[in-house]
């Protein structure tokens, strides 16, 4: 049995069986689905392909607009500024943020994306991972392995807490995505198990309490920009963990704390668009205008 419920459980299983984390995650899936390792790897390869295409489309298409007309084009704007040498924060983070914006904008434009873990947070993991992979010229197989690491982290979060904004707020959606991305990046850069666990913990800790308050109920404002900060959060956490900085609170305790914070959040702040940014005068005005246009 290659089952695990927690990040610690996943790491212990890998150590005990002398396997890598991707190997444990794949073996668990083999037991669950009766699919072969080759089939599972092929599915992940397909996911990676769609992630890359979404990033490219978001950065290159010059008329990318959401169905509502509210958003589009910001990823491209940032990527151009960075190319022109105008980045304040450095190439890696700037490019990752641009990709996260781009993929989330592609999502809002009703184009194909991979929900990781959800459609609303689909930009974070690919943006952080693809940017690092490009910079350090990682092979496709290594990136696919990192995606299995991200899945393992996501499974541990989903089983102990939630990855749904309606259940746990944005911390559960963009927060989980950032945790998955942080751990995957640490793995890709050769970090050890402790560094991986710390990266997930650090990234999740920084967004505890983040509410889900979509303007007019749409996956656009503030979701797209939260994908951007989610990608930077993942990279900052990975950077700290790879330098040897540890999380004082162990990762699984952070996940359980995230669950409790989510439970304590009022319904107004869990995707219902009744509170937070969704209840601001500007949001209400946008909502009215969209209804009139209908």
């Amino acid at each position: 049995m290659y089952d695990f419920k927690t990040i610690n459980g996943l790491i212990e299983l890998a150590q005990k069986e002398e396997l890598s984390i991707p190997e444990v995650v794949i073996l668990r899936e083999q037991e669950l689905s009766e699919r072969s390792e080759a089939e599972i790897r092929e599915l992940m390869k397909k996911n990676l392909k769609v992630m890359k295409e979404a990033a490219q489309k978001g950065l290159e298409k010059d008329d990318l607009t959401s169905i509502s007309g509210l958003t589009g084009g910001d990823g491209r704007l940032l990527a151009e500024a960075e190319k022109d040498g105008k980045s304040l924060i450095g190439a890696v983070i700037s490019q990752a943020v641009a990709k996260a914006l781009a993929i989330a904008e592609v999502n809002a434009a009703m184009e194909p994306i991979v929900a990781v873990p959800t459609a609303g947070s689909c930009g974070i993991l690919p943006a952080a991972l693809l940017t690092v992979a490009e910079k350090y010229e990682k092979k496709e197989e290594e990136v696919i392995d990192a995606l299995f690491v991200a899945s393992g982290i996501g499974l541990a979060i989903a089983q102990q807490a939630s990855v749904s904004g309606a259940e746990g707020g944005c911390q559960a959606e963009c927060g989980s995505a950032a945790g998955m991305a942080a751990g995957a990046v640490v793995y890709l850069m050769g970090g050890d198990h402790n560094q991986l666990a710390s990266a997930v913990a650090i990234s999740l800790k920084t967004v505890l309490g983040l509410v889900c308050d979509p303007v007019a109920g749409l996956v656009e404002v503030p979701c797209i920009k939260r994908n951007a900060t989610g990608a930077s959060n993942a990279l900052v956490a990975a950077e700290m963990a790879l330098a040897g900085i540890e999380s004082v609170i162990p990762v699984d305790e952070v996940i359980v704390a995230m669950k409790k914070v989510g439970d304590a959040l009022p319904n107004e702040l869990k995707e219902t668009s009744l509170g937070g940014l969704a209840a601001t005068p500007t949001a209400r005005k946008i909502e009215n205008e969209l209804t009139l246009n209908n």
């Binding site: 434009a109 009703m110 499974l155």
Partner: peptide, 11 residues
């Protein structure tokens, strides 16, 4: 967790 591949914007 990773997937589905879908058209946006909302699962």
């Amino acid at each position: 967790i990773i997937g589905p591949i879908m058209l946006g914007p909302s699962s």
